[in-house]
C-alpha cells in the first residue's frame, strides 16, 4: 500500500518533469520524487506493530520484530538533509536565472539560443 503510494508519487514527479515548462515546477517535481523515494525506503523497514527503535522504560529489551528496522531510517535522515541542500541551491540558482533572462519559463527566456 505505502509502496504503491510512493511509486505513484514517483510517476507524478516524472510526469511533471516531462511536461512543465516552468523551471520552478521542475524543482517541485524533483522534490516530489525525492520525498517519494524517502517514503519507499522507510516503508521497506516497517514491521507490523513495530515500535520506534528506542529503548525506553516501557520497552526495555529487544524481542524479535518488536522494533521497526532502524537502518532505513538512518539512511533517509541523510537523504533528507541532502535533499534540503540541493533544493535550496536549485532555488537560489533560479533567482539568478530570473534576473538574467527575465523569466523562469523555458519558452519566455530572453537571450537563450534556440
Amino acid at each position: 500500500m505505502v509502496y504503491g503510494i510512493s511509486i505513484i508519487l514517483i510517476g507524478i514527479g516524472i510526469y511533471g518533469l516531462m511536461t512543465q515548462k516552468n523551471l520552478f515546477k521542475h524543482i517541485v517535481s524533483l522534490s516530489i520524487i525525492d520525498t517519494a523515494v524517502n517514503i519507499f525506503i522507510v516503508a521497506t523497514g516497517y514491521v507490523s506493530n513495530g515500535k520506534a527503535p528506542i529503548y525506553t522504560r516501557a520497552l526495555p529489551g529487544f524481542s524479535p520484530n518488536s522494533f521497526v528496522d532502524p537502518l532505513p531510517q538512518a539512511l533517509v535522515l541523510t537523504a533528507i538533509v541532502i535533499g534540503v541542500g540541493t533544493l535550496a541551491l536549485g532555488a537560489s540558482l533560479l533567482v539568478r536565472v530570473k534576473e538574467k533572462h527575465s523569466s523562469i519559463n523555458v519558452e519566455n527566456m530572453k537571450g537563450v539560443g534556440e
Partner: peptide, 25 residues
C-alpha cells in the same frame, strides 16, 4: 512514460517482502 515506469516499479515490488512483514532476524 510515467505509466510505464510505474508499471515497471510495481513489477519489481514482487521481489520485496510484503509491507509490514519484514523479518528483522
Amino acid at each position: 512514460v510515467a505509466a510505464g515506469l510505474i508499471y515497471m516499479l510495481f513489477v519489481f515490488l514482487g521481489t520485496l517482502p510484503l509491507y509490514g512483514k519484514v523479518d528483522l532476524s
